[in-house]
Design a binder for these strands. Structure first.
Lengths: 207, 207
DNA sequence: AGCCGCTCTAAGCGGGCGCTCACCGTCAGC
DNA sequence: GCTGACGGTGAGCGCCCGCTTAGAGCGGCT
């Protein structure tokens, strides 16, 4: 396959795991449409035509429009969790690991903003079972960050009164990047990642 | 009128300016529905029935469903801006004013979460002209917070390398409260406001 | 060649959407 | 007591939604 799978910063498109090719094209089209207009404002006809197919083609690869959202949300959360786990599992001080976690998490939310928007803001459009599955992944995301903060407090590196509240605020800050970031803005994902890592280290009173 | 206009913490319902009474009931119903399910997933029949009226009644008071969202967004942004202006205009050090601005802004996003959700997350559902009007209000919101941060830097109270970026992060942190806050959670709006004011003072390196 | 199985399309079904229209009850002014 | 203005309803129009179905095209087996 000679089609370029590269995008911003040489990062590989994260949908390579989706096969066959037509299913992936539909999913990528759905991510773009959902991110631009929201799940409920997007029609199956819009998704299919973005993928260069007829409306009926969607239903060969996906049972419903909701299944598309579910797959996107699942893969996106897996990726986000993977990013945090990698940073949390590294060697180094809690300060280094927290800065690494925040900067890479923010880089993902900014650089892959379309995906992140869908992942973070369309949870309510999922049915109860699918939503429960995603909520469980979010709890794991929270646990990773909280773990680093707790390590820092235990090691005397951080000064944090309310560990759970501060963890929530740190994640909240990162996630909201998907709402406001735009490629036309003055900052690159890397710059936002650096700035935010610095701000978060201040929030936890890192010394 | 003897019906209770009071809600959480004795705060007055902010829709008193909307008249006549039927128009206000429709608007309040729309806020609830939009916050719960999103603008596009809400039907005009749903709004009308929440207000105890027939579907056609909505169109006596509003030209379209979008006009309802526009009115809600406009009034909500006015209120948010008012809160920030009040805090910014107070006497006191930049540190005191920033803490006041953040805690009251966060209290509003948590305490009036349904309104805040609609105001912050349904901007894209507005048409171009209405959206432009709201975007202008958001720039004023940004300017208020940036003004306090600049004052603090000028007075040597704050240590901030990137004023615009830090302002953005502060607002981002506050706004995201509307996404995650729930009345069933462990924290009151007041507690979140206090915690966030403290975190923000750390972000700006207040001394 | 003949057939299967997979992918995709053209056409369209049933239903719910935003919104409209003809009409009705209530009440103030005369 | 009549009338007009106002705020409301019941019925429904035209449209587009998510999704289905019958069948076409085609590559790979035997």
């Amino acid at each position: 396959m000679s089609t370029a799978e590269e995008t911003t910063g040489g990062e590989v498109e994260p949908w390579e795991e989706v096969t066959p090719d037509a299913a992936r094209r539909l999913l990528v089209a759905a991510v773009e449409a959902f991110a631009e207009r929201g799940y409920h404002a997007t029609t199956t006809r819009d998704i299919a035509s973005r993928a260069g197919m007829s409306p009926a083609a969607l239903y060969i690869h996906y049972k419903t429009k909701e299944e598309l959202l579910h797959r996107i949300s699942r893969i996106g959360h897996d990726k986000a969790l993977d990013i945090l786990r990698t940073a949390a599992g590294r060697e180094g001080s809690a300060k280094e690991r927290l800065a690494d976690a925040v900067s890479s998490f923010v880089r993902w939310h900014a650089g892959r903003r379309t995906t992140a928007r869908v992942v973070q803001y369309e949870l309510d459009a999922l049915g109860p079972e699918a939503r429960a599955e995603i909520v469980a992944l979010r709890r794991q995301v929270d646990a990773e960050v909280r773990g680093i903060v707790e390590d820092g407090v235990a090691a005397g590196e951080f000064d944090v009164a309310d560990v759970q509240g501060t963890t929530l605020a740190v994640l909240s800050l990162c996630i909201d990047v998907a709402r406001w970031f735009t490629v036309n803005g003055p900052r690159t994902p890397e710059q936002v990642g650096e700035l935010y890592a610095d701000l978060v280290l201040r929030m936890v009173g890192a010394r």
